[in-house]
Nucleic acid binder design. Structure first.
Lengths: 200, 200, 200, 200
DNA sequence: AGATAAGCGAGACGGTACGTCTTGTCTTCTT
DNA sequence: AAGAAGACAAGACGTACCGTCTCGCTTATCT
């Protein structure tokens, strides 16, 4: 039944935004970001490579930084969306190992570029925190709380501290590159950290 | 053999580089960096504020990035030069607390700006590592090895891992600012990390 | 059939070049050139005075020299466009007198500045020749040939030589300023030169 | 009398000014001027090529323009110093032919560069007039007056006008290069000009 | 169907920073 | 004292990039 105009979305007048172009832009921006770095990519360069005008870019994003930021997270979306629901130290361990792997990958490098590139833009920095850091913290927090409930971790365990103790060293190596960020490191890190919070 | 001939620098010809101007430039650059941020400072602005010509700037530094980099470390030199020689867990603890304090200070903020600002310049990044990160690691390593020798820490302790476990979480909070980097955090971090490596 | 397809200029895409700004630039440049001289005018100065960005300047002109060159001829266009069609010695005389008057005027001074300012730029020098020197020669040649046909000048008269003999001394005084370039001089010059080519 | 030491020239203290260096500088400057053009030569370049410091250059010359100016005339001195004393139209003719030859030579080109290069410097322009233009005028004037006295030229001949009529067309072609400045032209020019002033 | 509204590519534009260059002066040590 | 070496201030030059604007065309909805 078509009904008397069941106005759900009151579709705006005028030519609709080309959704396909948006994807094209972000994909192109990601590639440029990956190949040339954050500062080396130019807004006009993105526009040209995506077959789009500069004006279109700035109609949807406020700045070059924002475009690259979005490009990064649009690309990471399928990678970052980990359904890692569950509980227990085994899962916590697996999660950390995966995170370490991600950071060491090409995608991780691109993300580091974005993180450093937007550092002076308060707004984007907060968004980065929310869309990446806090999201992962939340997942970790859930797993940790489950582990506490299961009696695997001491009841006095402070999830926030534990998270920082697990993530921090990974992050440290990731950004500074003073030492390799490999599986072995992640494993030893996990074991040593957990030792302090484990029951017995 | 002509004698020990303790390498006397054969003073270069011509008008000597104005050491005073150099200091003035770096000091000015530091202030601008502190007040405006990494990207917002311009090379000509530095020159003007320091009462120096642009050419002089680029005679001694290759780029704006390099100037700000040097400005940062020139300013930090007296702060970073910690004679923390000694041994024992007490010293290790004190060192970490001080580091945490430094990172949370205004100087720490400026350093974060430089760290993120130069991230895409391989050369400067390596220099940052050498002049800051590795230097601190060396101090920590010495203290840790002393502690092992004293029997305070297990003989199996891997200094590198321990350093990353202590520094990482600090660094994590410092750069991301998702949670406060205060004394309490540093203390709890230290206690929990050390727990895993302590004898008994 | 749509017609003989009278070449319609297929308006180029994109934002059209601001013709008004171009005029503004050239007019401003002319004024600066007149007031300060060729070397004393700066490209940024022109830009600023014309309310235009440096980039716009260099989008349309290759160098400062070219801008000033164009500015000069754009300004002279209405002055230089003399319809002096006709024939006979009277007209030739009038033409020379007018030329002398022009060279001695403020416009003439500006032109001298341009002529000397671009002397080392082969391309501009050739353009100067074509847009000024050769154009005037052509007019003179036509008048001279008419005069020959009318029997006022000997049939053996070499127009090129005659032109140089009339223009040269004017040019000589104009550029060097060793002696005044006034009407009396122009008249006497004309009379003496013509004497050699006149019939009888 | 104070002793043997018959102090005639009280030789000034300190290192004596190197007269030889002056020549070296001007010679070098001339070569650079010839090879690269007026604007393309830099003051430091001259200094370096002459094995002299910039300061030395500016101790004796006020500006780059002045150096090149001097360099030009120092080089031309032997060429320009023509003993053409004498009288009669034959000598006048020979003189004009020689002048034409000089202007068409490499030296002439260099001189054109200087003439145009210093056009905006009032002082140098006047010096150019005095050292070159007026000097030649004087010679020409003397020859012309002799010719009048000899009855070869009309007594009513205005030497100034005659000089401009002979020099102007040469100068015209020299600087603009719209037509060749060869011997044939000089001859025809001379014959036609003289025709108007010759007796009978 | 025509009017209206917005999206869009092309590319010019103002603003501003960059890093290089050149001129003429100044400072230090050497001859 | 004169000079070479070369650092310096001043400031112009031409390039690059950012984000905005203008133009004409296209794609949609609304009347």
């Amino acid at each position: 039944m078509k009904g008397p105009k069941t106005k759900i979305a009151p579709r705006p007048r005028g030519r609709p935004r080309s959704e396909q172009a948006q994807q094209e832009i972000l994909e192109t921006a990601y590639k440029l970001l990956r190949d040339k770095g954050f500062n080396a990519v130019g807004s006009h360069e993105i526009a040209k490579a995506a077959g789009v005008s500069s004006a279109t870019l700035y109609r949807w994003w406020k700045s070059k930084e924002e475009i690259l930021f979005d490009a990064c997270f649009e690309h990471m979306k399928p990678i970052l969306a980990i359904p890692e629901t569950g509980s227990g130290l085994t899962r916590l361990r697996r999660y950390i190992l995966r995170a370490s792997e991600f950071l060491a990958s090409e995608e991780g490098t691109v993300m580091a570029r974005v993180l450093t590139g937007i550092h002076e833009d308060q707004r984007l920095r907060r968004m980065f925190l929310e869309r990446y850091v806090n999201q992962r913290r939340q997942i970790l927090r859930a797993i940790i709380e489950d582990s506490i409930a299961l009696g695997e971790l001491k009841p006095t365990t402070d999830p926030e501290l534990l998270i920082d103790m697990l993530s921090g060293p990974l992050f440290f190596r990731w950004l500074q590159g003073h030492a390799p960020l490999d599986k072995g490191f992640a494993k030893r890190l996990f074991d040593n950290v957990i030792h302090a919070f484990q029951t017995q």
